[in-house]
Amino acid sequence: MQSEPETVCNVAISFDRCKITSVTCSCGNKDIFYCAHVVALSLYRIRKPDQVKLHLPISETLFQMNRDQLQKFVQYLITVHHTEVLPTAQKLADEILSQNSEINQVHGAPDPTAGASIDDENCWHLDEEQVQEQVKLFLSQGGYHGSGKQLNLLFAKVREMLKMRDSNGARMLTLITEQFMADPRLSLWRQQGTAMTDKYRQLWDELGALWMCIVLNPHCKLEQKSSWLKQLKKWNSVDVCPWEDGNHGNELPNLTNALPQGANANQ
């Protein structure tokens, strides 16, 4: 039996203060969670740290090169990735050669390999686009093909994040809520004067329960709670926002009361 040739994937992982802040993999797998190649590389880095070569930020490496080395570096880079980088390389070259260009008004240049500043917020990588696409796909299936189960798995993931005090929990729930609000069935049901299905109502109830967990979290800062309350009121003001217990619920009483009085006074 002839076996298929192994596929080699190019994986890049960025770290910042013990957190994975960005990942890319050439496998093309589109999912909310890390692909197997990213997981494998992460485990390899943890278990065999001495076998993973560390590099200086690219800005430091370029600083050590002379003119001939810099020219060779750029030309080889363009040669290897000709079709991908040539238009950008030519555009940057034209801007750098123009004395009045915006790029020449800024001192230095960005270096994504240098990491964030100590004052910058760092959080675990979350592919927001994939979260939105997955939720949109599950909702479009109308509760069939196990879509309700998949959405409940996403809710469980949010609960896990909140339990670990991962800031991505609120980010992920925000993305999920935005897709729920954009579901075209909400407008259709409102126009027809019909109620949503029981299964769909259960998903909305779970969504609301998770937001209650976030707003009532005693470890969150007042600024965060105020920001979430503002966003919740914005969603609640949309015409297609589902009713709660038969009422439109413009005042969001439970969520509002969860905040200190000082936060309400500033709204």
Rank of each mutant, 00 (worst) to 15 (best):
L137Y: 10
E206M: 13
L86A: 12
S147Q: 06
G28M: 13
Q105F: 02
H55Q: 07
I58T: 12
Q141F: 11
Q64D: 06
M161W: 08
S227C: 07
L56A: 14
K19M: 12
L252C: 07
A36E: 14
L77D: 01
L70Q: 06
G193R: 03
L186V: 03
C25P: 01
P87K: 13
R201V: 02
W211A: 01
L41A: 12
S167H: 08
K157Y: 08
H125A: 12
E178C: 02
T194C: 06
E160V: 01
L259Q: 05
W228P: 02
T79W: 07
G146H: 08
D50A: 15
L97Y: 09
C213A: 13
S3L: 15
T21Y: 05
K230F: 09
E4R: 11
H82I: 00
A12V: 12
Q150H: 07
T256D: 06
L139F: 05
S140R: 01
T61D: 09
C220I: 03
L216E: 15
L77C: 09
S147K: 14
P112H: 04
L92G: 01
C241E: 10
V74R: 05
H219L: 09
I78R: 00
C220P: 00
V106T: 12
R47V: 05
H125W: 12
E178R: 10
Q141D: 00
D31E: 14
L77V: 05
Q179I: 01
F15M: 15
F138A: 11
N254A: 15
V11M: 06
A114N: 03
G146C: 03
T197K: 04
Q224Y: 07
Q224V: 03
H81D: 12
Q71I: 13
K19L: 14
T21W: 07
S42V: 08
L186C: 03
S59F: 04
A116W: 12
P110L: 07
D198L: 11
S227N: 05
C35F: 08
K230V: 01
V80M: 10
V85T: 04
T21M: 09
P87V: 08
W189I: 01
W204T: 00
D239L: 06
S117K: 08
H107T: 06
N254G: 13
C123E: 10
P184W: 00
A40M: 07
K199I: 00
Q179G: 06
L188K: 09
L259T: 08
L54Q: 13
Q150A: 10
L232Y: 04
S42E: 10
M164L: 12
D198M: 06
Q132I: 05
P87L: 12
A93D: 01
N264A: 09
H107S: 10
L54S: 12
P242K: 02
C241L: 02
K157V: 00
K163Y: 13
V39L: 13
A40N: 09
I32P: 00
V38T: 10
K157P: 00
M212E: 08
E251A: 05
Q90K: 10
H82Q: 11
N217T: 05
A156W: 00
T197E: 15
N254L: 15
G148W: 01
P184V: 02
S59A: 14
H219N: 14
E206W: 06
E251D: 15
